[in-house]
Design a protein around this nucleic acid. Sequence first.
DNA 1: TACTGTGAATGTGTTCACAGCC
DNA 2: GGCTGTGAACACATTCACAGTA
Lengths: 211, 211
Amino acid sequence: MARPAIPHATVSRLPLYLRCLDQLPVDQETVSSGEIATALSINAAKVRKDFWYLECEGRRGVGYDIQSVASQIGAALGLDVPLTIVIVGMGNLGMALAHYQGFASRGLILAGVYDTDPGKIGESVGDLVIRHPDSLTEDVRSQGVSIGVIATPAPAAQGAVDLLVKLGVTSILNFAPVVLHAPAGTTLRRVDVATELLILGYHQSNSDGVG
Amino acid sequence: MARPAIPHATVSRLPLYLRCLDQLPVDQETVSSGEIATALSINAAKVRKDFWYLECEGRRGVGYDIQSVASQIGAALGLDVPLTIVIVGMGNLGMALAHYQGFASRGLILAGVYDTDPGKIGESVGDLVIRHPDSLTEDVRSQGVSIGVIATPAPAAQGAVDLLVKLGVTSILNFAPVVLHAPAGTTLRRVDVATELLILGYHQSNSDGVG
DNA sequence: TACTGTGAATGTGTTCACAGCC
DNA sequence: GGCTGTGAACACATTCACAGTA
């Protein structure tokens, strides 16, 4: 009954469960561990144990209530308090990320986009206008930004991180091809984030290799 | 001496090591496990064991030869035989990915970009021209494509996967917000790919939660 | 019968700790 | 002293297997 903390491995699967639940027929009310397991090609006991950590109660012989599982997962991921993000660096990648539906569909609110290029400042991106990173100080304070996305060229990346961290942003999603360092006085945990790479094996499970 | 297969966990760290090595001063010839461990905020024994799996030979009291470690990692990732990728879906995200330096800097060759929208077909993207996915059949055969990137809207994603798989592509990198299914006759392994999410904790290590 | 809940067994990955070499 | 190489200990994650409930 006194449940342990939710393991990392479980947390990393939660977004996957969420997507999977989203795609069930709207009139379906319950779902079994087996159904989810099949859809994600994982083991059903793993699904049950994951849900157990989340304190989702299922009904034997029936399954789990979709609504309540979804809301438990949302709560565990902190999506019940919507997260606010900003994107620094409005090159091609930054632009694409700003337009990308993936953030919104995961409940993230894009609050600002920034670039140092005077030629870009003032340009509109959806509802937002590109501004100089100097504005971050004000924006982070007023909007309570929790995630900063780095889409700058490599040499500018570390500076952007330092600034964000100084302002109190605690999560950095880095797309620049550099290894970032934690500014002084902070510690750092590196996490691989769920972009999905599906490795297809033909009839027997392919041993390994990222290619 | 008879070394076991390289564990998944190790493989998932190899790109990180590679980036880390790239950023060392050009005149530096050797690197110690401790140096790398500090840069990546991981344990030094882990680095040594990872290098051990790769059969990298270090010198006690000195460290590892940077060149040879880099080439061993490259070989383990299959980057000595350059991988070829194609992108299906040339909306904002697809465009950005096509221009993104990250692929090239990891030794991936972008061989084709595809979209079904007649208004987009024929448009140039760098050296390439957007074509209809029908051309994939020919292209995959002639270029030996190993990775297909899905950047289509959600409803088109599964169809794109089915086509790629039918043509013999064995790795799919999915950016569409849907759960994909393995076509009949194939098995599927899901992998989280290294986009870096740095979670910064202030002096004490932040317990958890992806936000 | 169909499903959950969960201890126990197994498998994998990480870290320690120290001998051995430069 | 600084660093690698590596067994052994530990921690964590997955899977099995089955009792229990609707």
